[in-house]
């Protein structure tokens, strides 16, 4: 389990992360979504111990990583910018990681390399960008970490390899009961594999919730009335995005759905339509007051 508590990170006077906290349980995939520069990579680097936070702490199973960096032997960080040693091959990198990860599994390494069709004796610098990404994932999974930090790990992967990677990650997580934190600027990429998603909004986490909880938890209502009615009649409903077009009224409700339905019924609408909000719509609604680059997230 990863516990991030009150992390703040400043670059000179620019605050990249401000008092941010969250938890990732075992066998859980935690998705970090946000536009470029929102702080995802910074946050992952702090968790990995690459950057030091100005305040706050990161704990693995209750052990602070700053005070006990040895716990990072169970953590593997796959950065966005990959690095392999000069003239390195998959084999030489396996030797490298074998020195630092006690559980490194050579059989897994061979099996996964073959699964991805990667030549273990070939220089990695000769690999394509996507192949390098695959190589890093192979090395990461072979290191048998209990915590996987993946930064934009699907970049450069073709759809087939992307699905394969997702499947491998999910299988690995299920088998090892590990925690995965995965970041992306694209929500669609994460929606189908994360059980928890957080939207990081340049400093803070704007939304942090379980995907299951979100599905069906918010509804959009469309009501038609026989006569013109005022908004004041909807008091008692915690709605958002209230819109009135003649006798047609739309709004969304995220809390106390049942109470809302009761109140709506009391108003005797001619027509009542209820639509559950998609993940995309929920994020849109949450971020409507921000300058968020929605297109990038949902593209």
């Amino acid at each position: 389990m990863i516990k991030v508590s009150n992390i703040t990170k400043k670059f000179d006077e620019y605050t990249a992360i401000d008092n941010l906290s969250f938890e990732v349980g075992n066998s859980s995939v935690y998705g970090l979504v946000g536009y470029n520069g929102a702080g995802k990579t910074t946050l992952l680097k702090i968790i990995a111990g690459v950057y030091m936070s100005d305040s706050g702490s990161v704990e693995f199973d209750g052990v602070d990583i700053t005070e006990h960096p040895e716990v990072k032997q169970e953590l593997f960080y796959v950065p966005d910018d990959l690095y392999f040693g000069l003239n390195s091959t998959m084999n030489s990198m396996a030797r490298f990681y074998h020195s630092y990860y006690p559980e490194f599994s050579y059989s897994t390494f061979v099996r996964l390399s073959e699964l991805f069709g990667l030549n273990r004796k070939k220089r990695i610098s000769g690999f394509s960008k996507g192949m390098q990404r695959q190589a890093e994932i192979v090395l990461a999974l072979s290191s048998m970490p209990k915590i996987l930090l993946l930064d934009e790990c699907f970049d450069g992967l073709d759809p087939a390899k992307r699905n394969l990677t997702k499947k491998l990650l999910l299988d690995y997580m299920a088998e090892k009961e590990c925690s995965v934190v995965i970041s992306s600027h694209n929500l669609h990429e994460l929606a189908d594999m994360c059980d928890h998603i957080a939207l990081i909004n340049g400093q803070k986490i704007a939304i942090d919730c379980a995907v299951d909880d979100m599905n069906g938890s918010r509804c959009k209502f469309r009501l038609a009335f026989s006569e013109d009615i005022g908004e004041e009649l909807f008091r008692g409903i915690e709605y958002k995005n209230f819109k009135k077009d003649g006798r047609i009224i739309t709004f969304t409700v995220s809390k106390n759905l049942e109470a809302a339905e009761e109140r709506i019924a009391q108003l005797n609408p001619v027509l009542v339509e209820r639509f559950p909000l998609s993940l995309e719509e929920i994020f849109l609604e949450e971020m409507e007051d921000t300058n968020y680059d929605f297109e990038k997230i949902f593209s």
């Binding site: 680097k45 990995a48 111990g49 690459v50 960096p69 040895e70 716990v71 990072k72 032997q73 169970e74 953590l75 593997f76 960080y77 950065p79 910018d81 690095y83 630092y100 990860y101 930090l149």
Partner: peptide, 9 residues
């Protein structure tokens, strides 16, 4: 990214 994420202080 690689060096400092290893399990070394």
């Amino acid at each position: 990214n690689v060096i400092y994420s290893l399990g070394l202080s």
